[in-house]
Every structure is written in structure tokens, then in C-alpha cells.
Simulated assay, not measured.
Amino acid sequence: MAEPQQDAHQGDQDATMVRIGQAIMLHRGGDREEARNRFAALWTETDTDADLFYRCTIAHYMADTQDDPADELAWDLRALAAADALERDRVSWGEHQLAVRSLYPSLYLNLAADHVKLGDEQAARLELERARGKLDALPADAYGEGIRAAIERLEKRIANGAASPGGTDHLP
């Protein structure tokens, strides 16, 4: 009897990932509002304790659909909180262990970009330092190189004084 329940749970997880992927594709296709609506629905449907990986992913991408930098920061902080909760409960990581570890540099990078948009250079530098501290978790592939390059670009923007509220750089 346990196997059918396990299969049903796996099916629910697969369906959630498909729906997250669909919302990401909508956003990347330019439909921010529909992506935001779908992420919001997923957020309310996921369990705050049992679905931490999904909640981290949803919040991470939901942040990118926000029009207000303060709202973007709030969603990025939710993503980080979910990742931190997963870190504390490593037993539940399962197959998501590598994904969570490799997400940290991007989470911190996005927080840094949020702070730049809000004009808080000091907080941005702190988050970039945290991102750099997690770079060893990134694979040596296109994703890892993209995050490393984005960190360097944002550091240069801040160093050159180009960091100002309202910036619009998209980060991974």
C-alpha cells in the first residue's frame, strides 16, 4: 500500500516542477504578469515546511517578475530563507542537495542586485562577498560561469559608481 502513495507523491512533485517550468517559460517569453500569477498560485499551494525546495525555486523566480525593487528583495529573501531551512534539515534535501548548494551564489547575487536597485551599496557588497564565498559549489559549466561573470559585472558596476537605484540588470 505504501508504494501507490509514494508514486502519487512523486507525481505531485513532478507536476509541481512542470508548473514551475511553465511559469519560468512565460516570464522568459515576456509575460511577467501571467508568470507572477502562476508563481503566486504555486506559492499558496505549497507546504511551508514540506516543500522547501519548491518554495525556494518559486520565490527565486517570483522575484524576477516583480516591478518594485523592494518586492523583488522580499521574494529573494523568501528564497534564501527556504534554502537556509533546507540547509538546516539536510535529511530532506534528497536529490536536491547539489541544486540547493549551487543555488546559493545566485541567491546572494540577486540580493546584491536588489540592494543596488534600492541604492544600498554597502548591503550589495556584503551579498556579493557571500556569493563569492559560495562559488566553490558551482559546477564548471555554463551556469557556473554565468554566475561568476554576473558577480564580476555587478562588482565592476559598483566600483565604477554605476550602481544606482532603479537598475535593471537581469541576473540568473
Rank of each mutant, 00 (worst) to 15 (best):
Y104P: 01
G11T: 11
H27Y: 15
A82K: 04
G161Y: 07
V91K: 11
Y143R: 01
D68I: 05
E155M: 06
S164E: 05
R32H: 07
W75E: 15
A83E: 03
A124Y: 08
P4R: 02
Q66A: 13
L107I: 05
H27R: 09
T16P: 00
D68K: 01
R38N: 01
D141H: 02
A142L: 06
A140F: 04
R38D: 00
N37G: 10
H60E: 13
L111V: 15
A8H: 12
Y61L: 10
A140G: 06
H115A: 13
I20P: 00
D7R: 15
M17L: 03
L126K: 09
K134M: 04
G29C: 13
A149S: 14
A113L: 12
L80P: 01
R90E: 12
Q22V: 08
R19I: 07
G166Q: 00
L73S: 03
R36Q: 05
R88M: 14
L77F: 12
T168L: 04
P172W: 11
R132V: 15
L77R: 14
H60L: 11
A124C: 14
I20Q: 02
L103C: 05
A40V: 01
R157L: 14
N160W: 06
R78C: 15
T44Y: 11
A163E: 03
L103I: 00
G21I: 04
T48F: 08
